[in-house]
Design a binder for these strands. Sequence first.
DNA 1: GATGTAGACAAGTATAAGACAAGTGTTTTT
DNA 2: AAAAACACTTGTCTTATACTTGTCTACATC
Lengths: 243, 243
Amino acid sequence: MRTIRYQQIADELRGRVAAGSYVAGRVLPSEAELSSEFDASRVTIRRALETLRDEGLVDARQGFGWFVAAAPLRQTLGQLVTIEGQMAESGVEPQRKIIEFAFVSAPSRVRAALRSDNVLRVKRINLADGEPFAVVTVWCPAELGQHLSRRDVERSPFYELLGIALGGATQTIGADSVAPADAALLGVPVGSPVLCCERLTKDTNGRPVLLSEHVFPAHRTEFVVDLPHAAASVAPSGLRLVE
Amino acid sequence: MRTIRYQQIADELRGRVAAGSYVAGRVLPSEAELSSEFDASRVTIRRALETLRDEGLVDARQGFGWFVAAAPLRQTLGQLVTIEGQMAESGVEPQRKIIEFAFVSAPSRVRAALRSDNVLRVKRINLADGEPFAVVTVWCPAELGQHLSRRDVERSPFYELLGIALGGATQTIGADSVAPADAALLGVPVGSPVLCCERLTKDTNGRPVLLSEHVFPAHRTEFVVDLPHAAASVAPSGLRLVE
DNA sequence: GATGTAGACAAGTATAAGACAAGTGTTTTT
DNA sequence: AAAAACACTTGTCTTATACTTGTCTACATC
């Protein structure tokens, strides 16, 4: 069987990209260099590279060079995104079902976090393609949420409804056995493991505006964290021992 | 692989900012000084500095100079630290107890991640103030770990032993019910919830060097993640649905 | 006709070296 | 004390060279 040279070269290059010899953010050897390395003409090298470009593995800029294409997720995902947004990214149909919508006096933990006595508490189920995958409870200072209706929170994410520029958030991730009430809502056996997340969202001035608690069934969800750089300094993100 | 000079310089400067060689509030060396230090033209130095400015790390004022931008959240986010380091920070005495130290042929999942057939598998318990708080299994390509002894991994963290500059990591956080074997090691009831973390650590070239699996009892541990809002260059972390 | 080599040219980029304007901080002069 | 002078900085231009990809043409081989 005759071997097609440019396919052969494409295979080799594909391997190098996969193996990490060619890294995103750096430039591949120039066509001329590859040409002499593979002892093939520039046209052949180009054909190989172009097939890799069609596959989305690499890309090129005239006058600059060829480089490993950045993973699309990295570019499109924001920093502080809602779970719904991420689901939409991956083509899953997100839905919300409001279970509770009430202005209540804040329990101590919520009052400490939001620095507000009266709060709006919204409890809802998040559905992915019709199946429940999270029970979410959101607390919001009453003065910020007083213009909201049950319909509002069913339609849009809280982040949009408040109309406030958000400054950042602190998220705590833990595990637990599911509470009986949540087990029924999520459709999982009582006592099965869940991921519990508590997120405190602040505006640009650092004032806390939202406290939310997310309960995910363990079998359907996991967190992915990219840690970009090794560094000697101490980080606030990481594992923490609790009492 | 071809290198673009200004990217190289940007990397070096980024490192100096991260390492604290260039401190917030102080001015950086002038473009002219950097130019002679790196033996590169001022244009190249500027391009490097400008990419750092785009990342929000540094800023400049005409006639004054370049300085490290005061963005505390951004600088400290998502860095790669060992759990022991964080424990030492909080004044807890960390200990390691090695349970298993063996060179084995890699199971498929490990082989896929590390791209290596023979691996060193180390299983250990981490203790905080004498109490177990984590069961950790580390896989490492055999060629990287062949000079290591059981004593080595008991004394020092893997990161130090390998003597490799680390480039980053991807961490997956999930929840599960504890396996019977781990339950005994951790001293928790069978079936109680645990946090499961899988971390794939890579070197600066993007080559995977360590795969580690951490199992934490839920009642003692939780993750804290700071999500700054404005960071453009930091890779996103988020929730992912799994099958 | 598909595949390959060899070459030429245009357009874009990286880098060097330099010039000049404009802003900042310090020092000297008035 | 105010003003001027000076030495420094970044910001923004040129000019030139070397190198890169993008796009051709011409020709050989199977």
